[in-house]
Design a protein around this nucleic acid. Structure first.
Lengths: 217, 217
DNA sequence: TAGATTGTTAATCGATTAACAATC
DNA sequence: TAGATTGTTAATCGATTAACAATC
């Protein structure tokens, strides 16, 4: 496996989508695809697709194209979907529960081993076989079970204390659904943010722009 | 208001984060900030901040910097946070419920007017004062109420029929949580995607890369 | 072999950063 | 006025696209 750090983040962010598309092609029994054909289906350029795939080595065959099941498997391998990174969830509200399903889905690359919430009323409840524990057990749980990744679905106000504790307890990466800026507070820690509010505001801006435009015409 | 279509999407995607930061500065009673100071707090360059703000006009004052409450208000205005785009939610599972809270939050720019689900067992239940309706009422509801935006929190398999119906019924934009490619199926319709699975897979890739690296050292 | 399509380098495009004159 | 900081243009950097030789 060659050095990965020189692959640009924009390429990496496209990998999951390639993976999904190839999966659906595979499920439809399509065995062979050219970059041109795939580009048309995905709304990309053939050039970009070839460029992207080549970051990881020559998966194709001149004059033929790409073998779908093979390429699908390779990208899955690159994404490490078979790994089971030990993961804990902080916050078992609606969002936490929704996110649990994503972590549990086959080949996510992660394995949920613990769920925590500060609301005593729901502690003891089971989500997919895992009990919700009171947040006060979080530190000891980490010492005993050494989770690597934390998924944070709690209000931003609670985030500073929780992330301090988690980083101290050895957590290496976060899937962060709060607006608290973990990367700023803990340089060197890997963070993937999902900012739902930002996404909605962006849509609002674009919607109002395009609706204004329509009226003008 | 000048033409908006020439502002790059990367600038637009940064606006909500600016808005959030300025809000917290404002709440902390900070009245004045320079691009340099804001850059340090946000992990950006001062140059980029000035460049970004200038897309929308001169908000600052030479020798002084930016007035926080004023800038906050301007960006809110640009984002149209006071608009109430009529919005419906399709799919009232955990994700749908979580997302409802985001739409309801003050100044989201959207107003939720209807919730639909195909699961008859939960129809009639209220979420924040709005009843869950059976999906079979969707078409008539759209005719009567003319929603502009749809939030889709349903499985990809159900998406084709639902989006066909919605686009037909006059929906202009989507906040899409499924993996169905609305933009590909309905060219010209505005779509903001939130691909949770893709986000998790990206984190998995990056986590495995950086963990490998650590072992090597 | 001829046709098709990749792998890969070079050209283009766009976004970020640097620099500095304008000015508060 | 002098110091500070913006607004704005030019330079740099990186990502996307185009082109084509290699080759199946």
């Amino acid at each position: 496996m060659t050095a990965r750090e020189d692959i640009s983040i924009s390429v990496i962010k496209r990998l999951p989508r390639y993976y999904r598309f190839l999966q659906s092609l595979k499920e439809n029994g399509i065995v062979r695809i050219s970059s041109k054909e795939l580009a048309a289906r995905m709304g990309l350029t053939a050039s970009q697709i070839r460029h992207d795939f080549n970051c990881f080595g020559g998966f194709g065959q001149q004059g033929y194209g790409y073998n779908v099941p093979e390429l699908h498997a390779k990208i899955g391998e690159i994404l490490c979907i078979d790994k089971e990174i030990k993961t804990i969830l902080i916050g078992a509200g609606n969002l936490g529960k929704a996110v649990t399903n994503k972590i549990f889905s086959k080949n996510s690359g992660f394995k949920l081993i613990g769920i925590f919430d500060k609301n005593e009323a729901i502690c003891g409840n089971m989500i997919r076989g895992i009990p919700i524990r009171n947040i006060s057990y979080l530190e000891n749980f980490c010492i005993d079970n050494e989770p690597v990744c934390a998924v944070t679905c709690i209000p931003s106000n609670d985030m500073r204390d929780v992330t301090d504790l988690l980083v101290n307890a050895g957590i290496k990466c976060f899937w962060n659904f709060s607006n608290f800026d973990i990367a700023m507070a803990h340089p060197g820690i890997l963070v993937e943010n999902v900012h739902l509010t930002d996404s909605l505001l962006t849509l609002g801006y674009l919607a109002n722009s395009s609706l204004d435009l329509e009226e003008d015409e």
